[in-house]
């Protein structure tokens, strides 16, 4: 087993390391699926799903890595983001269905902005009231954040009701592009593009700014950052708010993807989000992206090739990767 993993590491390292893992998975799937059009449709769907999972998981990964906080309540931001966004979209129905992409875009932007603002404010509240008293106590963190998740779900139930909530899509994101035999859903292409833009922005902030440098250093050694004269506790609040806002944006995009949402959607997605964070490696944005894309691709490929295995595919992927790399694909701390 050890020899096999060493050989795998060496071969991968020669061709660009773990970054090429999704490419390898896609190539294997191409052979197994056989039909190029089906493969392309599944690949685009997998990438879009991966990008939305990335948005939901990136904040959790940073919070985990920087603050050592196990936040099981992260799903609340996903659910609230979805419902807040869907409510704004419902209120802007006329702009949404208008035959003008400008009005469509404004309605969509307003709904995402509302979700992000909600995530920022709720993140600040959550960190200050719920997380701060239980820093460095994992058992209490698990208990209190699960409690907060239940309260949040019940609040959604009380406010929006228990029946599935229908989410309107902007007119210009409806339908598919048909290229030959290939059908690419426009919303999926949009989700992939927006997710990629957020990744580039996050990558820039983390790698090219002083605040990003502080976050990366804080993930490695919080005490040392404080000993250099920086208040990490204040940095924590900022990162927590950012993570919550990203989760809310991810929820808003997922709502448009599913078009029917329930108060339990966040909790249902949370297992996959945790798998993404664990596969990617704690505290690493690049690792989270890699993990999210792997999960997105594998879910779609296995769902097509062996539908009975679809539910277990993420777990199998996680077990395989952890056997190979116990700290995940690209952990922040070496």
């Amino acid at each position: 087993m050890r020899r096999l993993t060493t050989t795998l590491e060496t071969t991968l390292g020669r061709f660009g390391g773990v970054n090429l893992l999704p490419v390898a998975v896609a190539l294997v799937a191409f052979v197994l699926i056989g039909a190029p059009s089906s493969w392309l449709t599944l690949t685009v769907a997998g990438l879009a799903m991966g990008m939305m999972l990335f948005l939901m998981a990136s904040g959790l990964s940073l919070v985990f890595g920087l603050m050592d906080v196990l936040n099981f309540g992260h799903s609340a931001f996903v659910s609230f983001g979805a419902f807040v966004s869907a409510t704004v979209l419902a209120g802007m129905g006329a702009w949404l269905t208008a035959d003008s992409w400008v009005l469509n875009s404004l309605a969509l932007a307003a709904s995402y902005l509302a979700a992000i603002c909600f995530g920022l404010v709720a993140g600040w509240f959550f960190e200050t009231v719920i997380i701060k008293p239980v820093y460095r106590d994992h058992l209490r963190q698990i208990l209190i954040t699960i409690g907060a998740m239940i309260v949040a779900e019940q609040a959604i139930l009380a406010f929006w009701g228990g029946t599935p909530f229908s989410v309107a899509r902007p007119h210009f994101l409806e339908g598919s592009w048909i290229i030959g035999d290939v059908s690419i859903e426009i919303y999926r292409a949009f989700a992939f593009t927006l997710g990629a833009a957020v990744f580039v922005m996050l990558f820039f902030v983390l790698n090219r700014t002083r605040i990003g440098l502080l976050i990366r250093a804080g993930v490695e050694d919080r005490e040392m950052v404080e000993a250099l004269g920086f208040r990490v506790d204040r940095l924590f609040i900022g990162v927590f708010m950012l993570g919550s806002a990203l989760a809310a944006l991810g929820g808003a995009m997922w709502a448009g993807y599913e078009t029917l949402i329930t108060p339990h959607m966040g909790a249902e997605l949370m297992i996959v989000v945790f798998i993404v964070v664990i596969i990617g490696g704690l505290g690493s944005i690049e690792g989270t992206l890699l993990g999210a894309i792997m999960v997105g691709l594998m879910s779609n490929y296995i769902g097509f090739l062996a539908p009975k295995l679809a539910l277990a595919s993420n777990m199998i992927l996680m077990v395989a990767i952890l056997l190979w790399r116990p700290n995940g694909l690209r952990p922040a701390v070496k």
Partner: peptide, 19 residues
């Protein structure tokens, strides 16, 4: 500190500029 407190994933210059 005794363990040096180096930020391993940061470059030498990034470690210095942070201080």
């Amino acid at each position: 500190p005794e363990n040096m407190g180096i930020f391993g994933t940061l470059t030498v210059d990034e470690n210095l500029v942070l201080a």
